[in-house]
Design a protein around this nucleic acid. Structure first.
Lengths: 220, 220
DNA sequence: TGTACATCAGTGAACGCGCGTTCACTGATGTAC
DNA sequence: TGTACATCAGTGAACGCGCGTTCACTGATGTAC
């Protein structure tokens, strides 16, 4: 799931670099352009022509790779979900070595992604991309949620069978809380509010209180 | 805090209606146009000229009332926060007659606003309006949060002094959770996910579990 | 190894369009007397 | 009550601009023989 420029990329992956008549990697360059431009001005803040300009090609060139701007953004969203899934799965690491610690890592990984990949996050959650705008987009989005849900299942299994809450509900609660914190406070963005504590701590406290409410003491 | 068309409005408040040379209520009509258009196509989905067309005036007319599109949206956001504050305060009703029930009403009012005033909600939270884009915008936004915070203070006061959590933190948690649910599931929008239960119930369950985690039993 | 050819990614010029913004203007309204 | 005038909200024509999209084209690359 590479999204940074690799060693073997030909020249021309970024603005201003000289290149031959054929770009050689324009599709990737357009995705990178979209990421740069979204990060700068939001998902609505750039045009197809902007992306072409950023990649150093003529305004007609992107049509060889994407039908239109929406298809480009949907592609970015799909890649975003794939990276997101990977990041979450890595943080969760199947709950090893200790479920509660792993669950905390999972939440932090979520916030971390929103903070450090704001362009992907924006394309995934804020650009209004319909989930059927691109093959595999829905599947990629579901895969990300599946990590959360799998974690919730293991957490819930710590509880006695009677009164055990549905894992799906727990997953939705944690997702909502985390997404809410990420949206309201997670980015350095001028429209957001200031916080008296880092978002990671706000989230950690919330999850601890929530899990205590479910009857988990948090010390195992 | 009127935002619907009142009895005394002159003709011309909406598209297609005949009117005299002077519109008479163009500023309000432009705000309504923005709301309609945001609801239809999102906060980035309309232009200043669109708003003028919707209100039935020439494209130059809006300049008598707003410097540019951003000022129009910021105005919508401020009005949104004012309505939001009013709706939340009314639902909370100072915790009467019973704190827990009132707190539940507060959460529902939040979701209700996001659902039934998606255009305002969008302008307030998703349009990227800087809080200093309009006089009173920041104050209006803080007033809304103050309702939540005041409620959290009363809830926290139910607990014994030792181990009482900061009310600010509780307010932030509830705000994040509610905003998260509203963003992910709260609107009928195609980009959003389906839910196995109504968002109101999802929120209610989350808040109950959370408050239980704080040591509140929920039966008083 | 060299040559001919097919493929295909990117060019650049062109188009119609709608937007943002300005301007001198005009017509409705309100008010002083 | 009527009239003259000031005010001001909205007009409509105009402008430059950048966008999305198309098109016949061109030049680089790969491959069959």
């Amino acid at each position: 799931m590479r999204w940074t420029k690799g060693d073997k990329d030909p020249p021309g992956g970024g603005p201003g670099e000289p290149r031959s008549y054929h770009h050689g990697n324009l599709k990737e360059a357009l995705v990178r352009a979209a990421l740069e431009l979204i990060a700068e001005k939001g998902p609505a803040g750039f045009t197809f022509a902007d992306a072409a300009r950023w990649a150093g090609v003529s305004p007609a060139a992107p049509y060889r790779h994407f039908r239109d701007r929406d298809e480009l953004i949907a592609n970015v969203a799909r890649r975003g979900f794939e990276l997101f899934t990977e990041a979450l799965a890595k943080a969760w690491d199947e709950g090893k070595p200790e479920l509660m610690k792993a669950f905390d890592r999972l939440g932090r990984a979520y916030l971390d992604f929103a903070k450090h990949q704001p362009a992907y996050y924006s394309a995934m959650f804020e650009a209004g991309v319909p989930l059927d705008a691109e093959p595999q987009l829905r599947a990629a989005s579901e895969a990300a949620f599946a990590v959360l849900r799998g974690a919730a299942e293991k957490i819930v299994a710590l509880m006695p069978v009677q009164g055990r809450p549905p894992a799906l509900m727990v997953a939705l609660h944690v997702w909502s809380m985390t997404h809410g914190i990420a949206s309201l406070f997670g980015r350095g963005d001028a429209a957001r509010r200031a916080l008296p504590m880092p978002p990671e701590e706000l989230l950690e406290a919330a999850v601890l209180i929530y899990l205590r409410g479910l009857g988990l003491t948090g010390n195992r």
